[in-house]
């Protein structure tokens, strides 16, 4: 149980660090934004692992909230990239 769980969590950590590499090194601003978007989806996977490991269901609440906030952040950043103000 714990060994296979550790392997999963290290694999997800490696993918999160690959996203962080893209956020730090991206040549243009949209590249960094893509990294942020993908990182938000990976964190939902982490929440599912925590829920499975501890057996408590309320970690999934955090997962749903995180997916929601990630979606809103992506939409706001996309609107910002279009060079429009937020209220039109």
């Amino acid at each position: 149980m714990s060994t296979i769980m550790l392997v999963f969590i290290w694999a997800l950590l490696i993918s999160a660090f690959l996203c962080l590499y893209r956020i730090a090194m991206g040549p243009t601003p949209p590249d960094r934004t893509v990294g942020i978007d993908i990182l938000g989806t990976i964190v939902v996977g982490f929440c599912a692992f925590m829920s499975l490991y501890t057996g408590k269901d309320y970690y999934m609440n955090i997962g749903i909230s995180w997916a929601l906030l990630s979606f809103i952040g992506t939409v706001a950043l996309a609107k910002f990239l279009e060079r429009r103000s937020f209220d039109e």
Binding site: S65, L68, L69, I72, V75, A76, F86, E88
Partner: peptide, 20 residues
């Protein structure tokens, strides 16, 4: 606090998607 933020998020999504 967290629930209030999520309620606000709905209206902010309204502002972003449909305009001010």
């Amino acid at each position: 606090f967290a629930g209030g933020i999520i309620l606000t998020i709905a209206y902010v999504l309204l502002l972003l998607a449909f305009g001010g």
